[in-house]
Simulated assay, not measured.
Amino acid sequence: MWQALLDFFESTGFRFFFEPGGWKFLIMILLSLTLLYLAVFKKFEPYLLIPIGFAMLLVNIPGTDMFVETIKIVDGVETTSYSGLLGYLYYGVKLGIYPPLIFLGIGATTDFGPLIANPKSMLLGAAAQVGIFLTFIGAIILGFSGPESASIGIIGGADGPTSILLASRLAPHLIGAISLAAYSYMALVPMIQPPIIKLLTTKKERAIKMEQLREVKQSEKVFFPVIVSVICMTFIPSSAPIIGMLMLGNLIKESQVVPNLTKTAGESLLYIITILLGLSIGATTMATQFLEVQTLLIITLGLFAFGIATASGVIAGKVMCVMTHGKVNPMIGAAGVSAVPMAARVVHIEGQKVDPENYLLMHAMGPNVAGVIGSAIAAGLFLMFFA
Results as ranks from 00 to 15, higher is better:
I106N: 03
L115V: 07
P114F: 04
S149F: 08
I116Q: 00
L188T: 00
V189I: 15
A108W: 07
I106G: 02
Y185D: 04
L142K: 08
F133D: 01
A182D: 06
I102R: 02
I164C: 11
L170R: 03
A117N: 08
G156N: 10
G143E: 11
K120T: 13
A117E: 10
F133V: 14
S121V: 14
L166P: 08
Q193Y: 15
G138K: 06
S145E: 10
A177D: 03
Y185V: 05
G143S: 13
G176C: 01
G156Q: 08
S151W: 06
A108Y: 07
Y183E: 01
F112V: 01
S151I: 08
G131Y: 09
G131V: 09
I102L: 15
F144D: 00
S179H: 02
T110H: 04
S151M: 06
T162A: 15
G138S: 15
P114I: 07
G131A: 10
G160W: 11
L104E: 08
P195W: 04
A150E: 05
A177T: 09
A117G: 14
K120Y: 13
M191A: 13
M191H: 04
D159F: 08
A167I: 03
S149N: 09
V130K: 09
Y183Q: 01
N118F: 13
P161S: 08
P147V: 11
F103N: 02
G125H: 11
Y185R: 05
G156H: 09
Y185I: 01
I164F: 11
L174A: 04
S179P: 05
I154S: 07
F133C: 00
G160Q: 14
L134K: 05
A187W: 03
K120E: 13
P172T: 00
T162V: 15
